[in-house]
Write a protein that binds this DNA or RNA. Structure first.
Lengths: 253, 253
DNA sequence: GGCACTCCATGATCTTTGTCAACTACACGC
DNA sequence: GCGTGTAGTTGACAAAGATCATGGAGTGCC
C-alpha cells in the first residue's frame, strides 16, 4: 500500500502512470487502480538524456527496465570484430532493456537518437510487484512478445526481402506505431539518420538513398531529409508484402 | 502440494522433470524441490510428432509453451505474399511458443525436423504457478532472454555478415548448443536439410552449398550430407567474428 | 537390381548491392 | 553572408549472391 513520492526528477510534470498519455501503450496498460498505484511507486524518472548519450551499455549488469517517455532510442549490438547492428528503434511508450533478461547483463548498447526522457523500473521491484499484480504480468508478457515478434519480422525482412521492400516495410511499421500514438500515419519525421536506418535495414547508406529515390520517382513517397510523406500506402504494402491495413478512407489527423 | 500423476502418454519413460536429463537446460533449471514437483504436475507429455508434422500453426491461439524433449523443430514465419523465413531451430530442452506472447496467438508455424517428442505446459497454469515459484519465474525470464538474444545475434548476422561468415556463426552456435547437451562439439549431425538452413541464413541453397564447399577446400570442416566435422574452430570463430570460446585442449567427449 | 525422386554440388550468367568518388544542400559558427 | 562540416544523393564500377541449368549421389519403392 506504499505510495511514497519519488524525488529524482526536477521536471516532475507527469509523474503518474495513470496520468501519462502513453499508458495505453506502455506498461500500465490493462492495470487496475491498485496495480497502477503500486507501479507508480516504483517508477524512477531519469534525468533528460541528450542525443547520442547512452542509457545502458553492452556488458552492463541489468538493473532496470526502461520505458521511453519522450524521444527515441536505438539498440546497437556489436560483434567482437567491431561490426554493429541496430536491432531496434524505440519510440515513446516502448520498453527497453529486455536484452538483459538472458543472463542479467545487457547485450545491446542503448543510445538516444534525440533528446529524450525515460522511466526506469528496478527489475527486482518489478519482479516483486508482478507476483501480486496479474495485470502487470500480462502486460509485461505482451510487451515481451511484441519485442520477439518485432525481431522475427525483422529476420524475415533481412532474410527474404530486397532493399526496397525492407524500406517499405520499415516505413509502414513506423507509420503504424506513430498512428497508435495519435500522430499522422501519412506524414512524419523519422527520428534516425540515414546511416542508422541503413544499418538497421542491412544496407549501405548509398543503397538506402537509392531506394528512397526510387520510391520518390514512383510517387510512393515524398521526402525532405528526415521528413517523410506516404503517398501510396497500398503500393508500399505490396512492396513490403505484409499486412496492408484496410485503408481507412479518411486520413486520420 | 499436488503431485498428481498425469496419464497422457503411453511411453511414460521419464515423466518427471527432476529425472529428465535436460533439466539443467530447460525450464526446471534452478528450481527447488517444491517448485519442481509443482511444475511436474503441469507437464503434459504430448504424443510423438513425426517429421514434417506441425506442433502449432501461425494464427493458432496460444495455449501452451512447449519444450523439446527429443528431436528438433523449426519455426517458420510467413509474409502474406508467401515468403517464408525460418526464425529459429529448436533443440532438446529449448522452449517453443514464445512468439504467442504478443497477443496470445502464434505468429510462427512450428514444424518437426525429425521424429520428436515435446513437453507442453498450459500457459494459464504456468502463469498461476509462477506467482508462487520465484525460481520458475527467473528461469522463464532467462529463457525468454535467450530467445531475444538469439534473435538479435541473428539480426546481426543477416544484416552485417557475409554468407560464409553466417554459416561459420551457425556451425559454432550449433556446436555450442550440442556441447551443452553432452554431445561432441566437433562432430555432429545437422537436424535440418540444406534448404532449411539456407533459408535460415538468408541464402539461396546453391549459395549455401558453395559456402560449404569453400570451407571444405579451406580445411575448416568436413561434411558428408548432414554430418559435419569442425576441423579448425579458431578459423571458424574468426570468420563468424563472434565469441571464440577458449579452445579447451581436450576435445570433450 | 533398377527406376524414380529428392537432395546436394557445380558451372554460367544476371541481378542486387556494396564500394569508391564526386557533388549538393543544409546547419552552424563566426 | 561566408566558410566549414556533416548528411544525403548520385554515378561508375566491383563484388556478392541469386537464378537457371545440369549432373551426381543417396534413398525408397517396386
Amino acid at each position: 500500500m506504499s505510495h511514497s513520492r519519488k524525488v529524482i526528477s526536477i521536471h516532475e510534470l507527469k509523474v503518474s502512470c495513470g496520468d501519462c498519455s502513453l499508458s495505453e501503450i506502455c506498461l500500465p496498460h490493462g492495470l487496475n487502480q491498485e496495480e497502477l498505484n503500486e507501479l507508480d511507486a516504483l517508477i524512477l524518472h531519469k534525468p533528460r538524456i541528450e542525443q547520442g548519450e547512452v542509457l545502458f551499455r553492452s556488458g552492463d549488469p541489468m538493473h532496470h527496465l526502461y520505458a521511453v517517455r519522450s524521444g527515441a532510442f536505438k539498440a546497437v549490438l556489436s560483434s567482437n570484430e567491431g561490426a554493429e547492428q541496430i536491432t531496434g528503434f524505440y519510440l515513446s511508450g516502448e520498453l527497453m532493456g529486455l536484452d538483459g533478461f538472458g543472463d542479467d547483463v545487457h547485450q545491446c548498447t542503448m543510445v538516444a537518437l534525440e533528446t529524450s526522457t525515460v522511466c526506469a523500473i528496478d527489475i527486482d521491484e518489478l519482479e516483486k510487484l508482478s507476483t501480486r499484480a496479474p495485470g502487470l504480468r500480462r502486460q509485461l508478457r505482451h510487451l515481451i512478445g511484441a519485442e520477439i515478434n518485432h525481431d522475427h519480422r525483422n529476420l524475415l525482412a533481412l532474410g527474404q526481402l530486397k532493399g526496397e521492400e525492407r524500406l517499405a516495410a520499415f516505413l509502414l511499421n513506423i507509420s503504424r506505431r506513430l498512428k497508435k500514438r495519435g500522430f499522422s500515419p501519412y506524414e512524419f519525421n523519422l527520428p534516425m539518420a540515414r546511416h542508422d536506418l541503413a544499418n538497421y535495414l542491412g544496407l549501405a547508406v548509398e543503397t538506402l538513398s537509392r531506394m528512397f529515390s526510387r520510391m520518390i520517382d514512383a510517387d510512393l513517397i515524398e521526402t525532405n531529409r528526415r521528413h517523410v510523406k506516404l503517398l501510396n500506402t497500398k503500393a508500399l504494402c505490396e512492396l513490403a508484402q505484409y499486412d496492408c491495413p484496410r485503408e481507412s478512407h479518411h486520413a486520420s489527423s
